[in-house]
Design a protein around this nucleic acid. Structure first.
Lengths: 186, 186, 186, 186
DNA sequence: AATGAATGAGAATTCATTCAT
DNA sequence: AATGAATGAATTCTCATTCAT
């Protein structure tokens, strides 16, 4: 590791890692500070509270998915099937830790929901997720149908993500992603 | 027998309520004691630790689902469609709080991933869930196919449960359950 | 073990074992109850408090040493050397656990001294210990000298008992006891 | 540097006082914090646990004895008798509280037998104590004899320390120390 | 006598946060 | 910006003791 210049981005990156693997509640500010190579007190120069930090983390994830995953759905240069294929491939890469092969959580959505402040940003994330997939289905289906299919797709992804974590087996997720791609083909 | 204010069952019941609405980590032993009308220390008469208590809670939920939900899948007195219909109806009732209409968290899933001791019991729960649904699919499909469909069904249920919580709208769950019933029909 | 009829004596016996191996402060009433095969609350039928129990334990040890060890010093049927020899042999047997060969503490005198109520009974014990040895020395030495030698002997025994425990090696004690016997011989 | 009320050394010093007068088990972290003028939680800035603190305390005592007492035995500038005399005088000053005149407990000996982590450090302390006295005896006696005499000397010191505490009378210790000095003379 | 549920005070420890330097 | 000492409230857990049955 290079001698890290600590900045907001680094803190968010390290927090995300910890929140994903250990969940929000079992990650302490101390853990985060240690991961960043600074002291606990110094975190408060960048973020006024742990909740604030978490919100920035969720927003960052949201932006990242927007730029790296959801955007693919709107890429006019590819056909619908190609877009779905690419999107699912990208999502897979993000959800599965390249080094360990283990499946990382979605920042512990379940736990996060306990804190009301987090709800709107989590909602925004999933709304965009659904919207992107719906955009693809709209090429083939009418409005209410396309929306339902998108919700179902996101449900399947999130549910299989959970099973993958519970059983410590990325296959659960991978099969779902493949199935979703095929479903477009028809 | 001595003066008896509470018993194991009451503590488990109150803990379950709290764990479902507030999550494991944000529920303190103090909260539980208060809900039971006893003092913190008295809880340790019944359960040697918070983790122990949580395990009993998960086991209780597991047993309850076995008796009240999964068992329906094996009821030879009904046809396969009726069984699925009944099962989903029963699950719906359990997942949705009758009084508030809000969707409760799926106890422990989050913690299972953080506290290793919980993992096996959570796995057992989902294994039984998948098995029950697979049993229904086996009337129509061969072994590997039936298993895949069951995993997919559980994924959809869990994923839509999550969306229902995120958006505070039970419809997400209800639509999924209905869809699963219809899927059998065909 | 035969089905123990619980009585004061049994409780004292089991407490002594625990206090000697684990010390007063790290032995809980629960530990004692368990060792006796009864419930915590039942202990209070026999002893009004943990301190009360400890006092009875010390007194019992005192009486036991009086009857089994110190009395030997006053046995006119033996010569002084024989008495010392027998006394030390008896003490050795008591201090060293026959089964494990490990050296048991003196009910944790150090710890016990923290509680003022225990002091007089502990003093009485050591006063009698010194008196018995002094009685032997009086056959050869005058009053102040005999007393000094006895105090020194008890110091050596207690000090080497401590070293034996610290180094987990009964040799420290055994050598001291042998030396004390030889010292009489001259 | 930040606002500084206490430092590691102060905490160790205050802990030592308390452990010596009240023993490890009856001294709470709260007691220590109070003695240092800080809050309980702040102690954990300096020591990660009570056991850790105790270990540092024992080590500090050990170092102190090494520098202030045991070192005297190796002082080539003095003859053997002078060294023993000085060493015993120094030890006396340490064992007897100057203000109260009472004999303080020998920190940790009791706990060493109950908390396994402490045993090695307590053993190291006594090994060094024996070694120092043995060094003096080696000027007059051969190897095995010198060792035996040193062990005996330490036994006498520790045993009389205990009697001094039991009878609340420093004479027990003082006489032993004097006797040990005289024993060299001959 | 015995039970065992309940108490209530107190233990060690954790942690988000503040703030003087 | 950064430090790191200090806070103070909360957390899990322990334990001697009480008492209705």
């Amino acid at each position: 590791m290079a001698k890290q210049k600590v900045d907001e981005q680094l803190i968010i990156k390290e927090s995300l890692k910890l929140f994903r693997s250990k969940s929000y509640h079992t990650t302490s500010m101390s853990d985060i500070a240690k991961a960043c190579g600074i002291l606990k007190g110094s975190l408060y120069h960048y973020f006024s509270s742990k909740e604030q930090l978490m919100m920035k983390v969720i927003e960052t994830v949201h932006k990242f998915f927007k730029a790296e995953v959801f955007s693919i759905a709107y890429n006019e240069g590819l056909d619908v099937f190609e877009r779905m294929e690419k999107m699912m491939a990208r999502a897979e890469k993000i959800f599965i830790d390249e080094e360990t092969g283990s499946v990382d959580g979605n920042i512990g959505v379940e736990t996060a929901l306990v804190i009301p402040e987090f709800r709107p940003i989590i909602q925004a994330f999933f709304a965009d997720f659904i919207k992107a997939i719906k955009h693809l289905y709209l090429s083939e289906f009418e409005e209410p149908k396309a929306n339902g299919l998108a919700i179902r797709a996101v449900s399947e992804i999130e549910g299989s993500l959970m099973l993958a974590r519970v059983f410590n087996d990325k296959k659960y997720l991978q099969k779902t992603l493949k199935r979703l791609i095929k479903r477009i083909e028809k």
